[in-house]
Amino acid sequence: MNMPGGLGEALLRSASDAIVATDRDGRITFWNPGAERIFGFTANEAAGQPLDIIIPENLRARHWEGFRHTMATGTSRYGHGDLLSVPALTKDRQRISVEFTIVLLRNDRQEVAGTVAVMRDVTKRFEEVRDLKRRLAAAGGKA
């Protein structure tokens, strides 16, 4: 299905969610206004940077292992509408919680050429659930 002229571009540029595309090496090739709002980096600051700018240091090795596997095999556990919840970093190094799903980008030969991730900041919800679990555990401990 083809979208009417400019609709795809309008959606990418106006989405409240972060939409981030990378090349095969994990360097950022697209960074929409939603990504600017959530992470604090402008599109110019993010362009060409590795995804490390938003990945907490303690998670980078695991991320890159999975990323390289996805680039090599053309498959991802998270590419079929499944949401992954992970910590992320903002420009000011604040840790937030995001949910995301990815789509693999392919070239004319159907080889994986990169990724597009759609991310949503779920920090507030994550903190509310964590607080509720703490309160329930404390109440259960008093019974």
Rank of each mutant, 00 (worst) to 15 (best):
M71D: 13
Y78M: 10
R120S: 05
D131S: 05
D108T: 08
R95D: 01
M119C: 03
R68V: 14
G74P: 00
T101K: 06
L84W: 01
S97M: 15
R130K: 15
K91T: 08
R93C: 00
M71G: 01
A137I: 14
R125L: 08
G81A: 02
G114R: 15
S76H: 07
V122M: 00
D108F: 02
V129E: 09
R77P: 12
G74S: 08
V112T: 15
D92S: 14
G81N: 08
G79P: 00
Q110T: 06
R106D: 01
L89K: 11
V129Q: 09
G114Y: 15
D121W: 00
G114M: 06
R130E: 04
G74W: 06
V86C: 03
A113M: 07
T90V: 02
V116H: 05
H80E: 12
R109W: 03
V103Q: 13
R68G: 09
T90S: 09
L136I: 14
D82S: 02
R125D: 11
H69T: 11
V129C: 11
K133G: 13
A137T: 11
M71P: 06
F126E: 08
F126S: 06
V118Q: 14
T101R: 01
G79F: 06
E111I: 15
L104R: 03
R93M: 12
V112E: 13
L132G: 05
L84N: 01
H69W: 12
V98S: 05
V118Y: 02
R120W: 02
T70V: 01
A113V: 10
V122W: 04
T73G: 12
D82G: 06
E128Q: 06
P87A: 12
E99T: 12
T101Y: 05
R120M: 11
K91F: 15
K124W: 10
T123P: 04
F100E: 01
S76Q: 07
L84A: 14
E128K: 08
L83S: 01
R93E: 10
E99D: 08
G74H: 10
E127D: 06
K91G: 11
V118H: 04
A72M: 01
E111Y: 10
A117D: 02
D131P: 02
D121L: 13
V118C: 04
A117L: 05
V129L: 11
R134K: 14
R134I: 14
R68S: 15
T73M: 08
V98D: 09
G114Q: 09
A137M: 11
S85T: 13
G74D: 03
V122Q: 02
T73D: 12
K124N: 08
L105D: 08
A113D: 15
